[in-house]
Simulated scan of single mutants.
Amino acid sequence: MCRAIDEQPELAHNLTIKNNTIAIVSDGTAVLGLGELRPEAVMPVIEGGKAMLHKRFANVNAYPICLGTKDPQEIIKTIKAISPGFGAIHLEDIASPQCFEIEETLEKELDIPVYHDDQHGTAIVVLAGVLNALKLTKKNLEDVKIVVCGVGAAGIAITKMLLAAGAKNIVGVDKEGTITSEKQYDNQMWQWYASQTNADKIDGPLNKAMENADIFIGVADADILKVEDINRMATDPIVFALANPQS
Rank of each mutant, 00 (worst) to 15 (best):
F216N: 03
T178L: 08
A209L: 09
A199Y: 11
F216M: 13
K201W: 10
D203Y: 08
D203Q: 12
E176W: 07
Q196R: 02
G177M: 06
A194Y: 01
W192K: 11
A194I: 10
D200P: 05
M210F: 02
N212W: 05
Q188R: 13
Q196G: 09
N198R: 02
F216S: 02
E176C: 08
A199T: 14
I202D: 00
N207H: 14
Q191W: 00
M210P: 03
D203W: 03
G172L: 09
V219T: 08
G204C: 07
M189D: 13
Y193Q: 00
N187A: 02
N212C: 11
E176D: 13
K208C: 02
I202K: 01
I217C: 07
G204Y: 01
G218N: 14
Q196W: 04
A194R: 07
L206I: 08
M210Y: 09
G204K: 06
V219N: 04
T197Q: 13
E211H: 12
P205A: 08
W190Y: 13
G218A: 09
D203P: 03
L206S: 02
D203N: 13
I215F: 07
Q196H: 04
T178D: 09
G172H: 05
M210L: 14
G218D: 02
I217K: 04
G218C: 08
I179F: 09
K201L: 12
K208T: 09
N207R: 11
N187Y: 07
N198P: 01
T180K: 03
D221E: 14
Q184A: 13
A213W: 00
A220T: 05
M189P: 00
A222P: 06
A209C: 11
T197Y: 12
D174T: 04
N207G: 04
A199E: 13
I179W: 01
D200C: 02
A209G: 09
A222I: 10
N198Y: 05
V219S: 06
K183Y: 11
A209Y: 09
F216T: 07
E211Y: 10
I215W: 07
K183S: 11
L206A: 05
D221W: 07
W190K: 15
K208R: 13
Q188K: 15
K208Q: 14
D214R: 08
Q191M: 13
K183R: 13
P205W: 03
T197C: 15
A209H: 04
A213N: 07
T178M: 01
N207P: 08
A209V: 04
D214W: 04
V219C: 10
N187T: 07
K208M: 14
Q188F: 09
D221T: 12
N212M: 12
Q184L: 12
I217M: 04
Y185P: 10
N187I: 03
